[in-house]
Design a protein around this nucleic acid. Structure first.
Lengths: 119, 119
DNA sequence: CTAACTGTACTAGTTAGTTTAATACAGTTT
DNA sequence: AAACTGTATTAAACTAACTAGTACAGTTAG
């Protein structure tokens, strides 16, 4: 299940969309697996069905899910969407590295940080 | 000078605030240096003075600038603000690394990426 | 002191985005 | 036929961002 927070400044539909995208692209939810229906999820999260529908619509446009009238919404085959997301995050990564280095953080320090506990 | 974009979904005051914060903490603008006045910058960017004032107010709260009634706004001594910003960006960095690794990007790949052209 | 600059505060109105609400239609399944 | 599914539409409420106008307070140059 996913959670939403009213403390989070992001709109609800973005929280729902981002939470499912993360789980789907990470493989937590397998291709073909069914998502809760628009009405059921809106009821569980105590928000309006339109809010959930917007999240699902954007997930479908991204290629993360496939919605079929009368049947439901299902996790899609996401190789393409995963690659697009990877590129997007790597771009953010490069920008972040650049700003951190302008603040005096060294490449070595960042390298150790991604390495975890290897060196 | 800084630029704003009406294509950018971020509010104008955030664009102004973030642009100056970046330049100030990177040392592009030296401590003591005077910023354009609220009225002058609002005129140059063709936005309302209130919008600029909000950006300046937040920069002052962050410790990046110091505003004095009647005199103007000046770049502050930013060692504290820089350290706070560094911590903030490193937290974002860690989250980004975690999400990238959940997409199958390896630590090695990210390490090479921060290193630039060293390997 | 006056004029022209500076930051700051306040109120009001507009606009855009988010969310809710209610309703309706279309396809699937039992 | 009934109960589920996604989808579309319209209206309203609410909030944040932005604009507009005005006013006040401190500084500086004449």
């Amino acid at each position: 299940m996913i959670h939403i927070s009213y403390q989070d400044p992001r709109p609800i539909y973005e929280q729902v969309r981002d939470a499912y995208r993360q789980q789907i692209l990470a493989g937590v939810l397998a291709p073909g697996e069914q998502l809760p229906s628009v009405r059921e999820l809106s009821s569980r999260l105590a928000v309006n069905p339109n809010t959930i529908q917007r999240a699902y619509r954007e997930l479908e446009q991204e290629g993360c899910i496939s919605s079929v009238r009368g049947k439901g919404s299902f996790v899609a085959d996401v190789s393409g969407a995963a690659e697009a997301r990877r590129r997007e995050l790597l771009e953010q990564f490069d920008q972040l590295v650049q700003e951190l280095e302008s603040l005096g953080v060294t490449s070595e320090e960042l390298g150790q940080r991604v390495g975890g506990g290897e060196g």
